[in-house]
Simulated scan of single mutants.
Amino acid sequence: MPRLAEAAYSEQPWLIHELASDFAVEDVWSFRTPGAGPDDFPVMLAALRAAGGPVKQMWPVRFLFAVRWKLGALLGWDKPSVGVGERVASLRDRLPSDIRAASPGPDDDDMPLKAVYELDMEAARELANKTVHTVMHLGWIRGVNGDYELRMAVLVKPNGWFGRLYMAAIAPFRYLIVYPALTRQWERAWAGRSR
Rank of each mutant, 00 (worst) to 15 (best):
Val154Tyr: 01
Ala171Ile: 00
Gly35Ala: 02
Pro106Met: 09
Lys130Val: 00
Val116Glu: 06
Ala153Cys: 01
Pro96Phe: 06
Ala47Glu: 03
Arg49Tyr: 12
Ala115Pro: 14
Tyr166Thr: 00
Pro172Gln: 04
Phe63Ile: 14
Trp186Arg: 13
Gln57Cys: 15
Tyr148Pro: 09
Gly146Lys: 02
Gln185Val: 12
Asp108Pro: 04
Ala50Asn: 11
Ser90Trp: 11
Phe65Asp: 02
Trp186Ile: 07
Asp40Gln: 13
Leu74His: 10
Phe65Ala: 13
Leu127Cys: 06
Gly53Ser: 15
Val43Pro: 00
Glu149Tyr: 00
Leu176Gln: 12
Asp109Ile: 05
Gly85Asp: 10
Gly105Leu: 11
Lys157Asn: 11
Val156His: 06
Thr134Ala: 15
Pro2Arg: 14
Ala7Arg: 15
Val67Phe: 12
Phe31Arg: 00
Ala51Ser: 15
Pro38Ile: 00
Pro13Gln: 08
Val154Phe: 10
Met1Tyr: 11
Ala123Trp: 05
Asp108Glu: 11
Leu182Thr: 14
Leu64Asp: 04
Arg87Pro: 05
Phe23Asn: 05
Arg174Asn: 12
Arg164Asp: 06
Asp98Cys: 02
Leu95Met: 10
Lys56His: 14
Asn145Gly: 00
Pro172Ser: 03
Arg174Ile: 00
Arg193Pro: 04
Glu149Gly: 04
Gly52Tyr: 02
Thr131Glu: 12
Leu113Gln: 07
Ala51Asn: 07
Leu119His: 02
Lys56Met: 12
Gly146Glu: 00
Trp59Phe: 15
Asp108Val: 02
Gly53Ile: 09
Arg184Gly: 04
Ile99Thr: 11
Thr131Ser: 11
Val84Cys: 04
Pro172Cys: 01
Asp109Trp: 07
Asp107Trp: 10
Tyr117Trp: 10
Asp22Leu: 06
Arg125Asp: 05
Val116Ala: 09
Leu155Asp: 02
Ile99Ser: 08
His17Gln: 13
Leu19Ile: 12
Asp93Pro: 05
Val116Trp: 08
Leu155Gln: 03
Leu64Gly: 15
Gly83Cys: 10
Gly160Pro: 03
Glu6Leu: 03
Asp22Gly: 06
Glu187Ala: 03
Ser103Pro: 05
Trp77Phe: 14
Trp29Met: 14
Val55Ser: 15
Gly192Tyr: 01
Pro54Phe: 15
Asp22Arg: 04
Gln57Thr: 08
Leu127Arg: 08
Pro42Asn: 02
Asp40Leu: 08
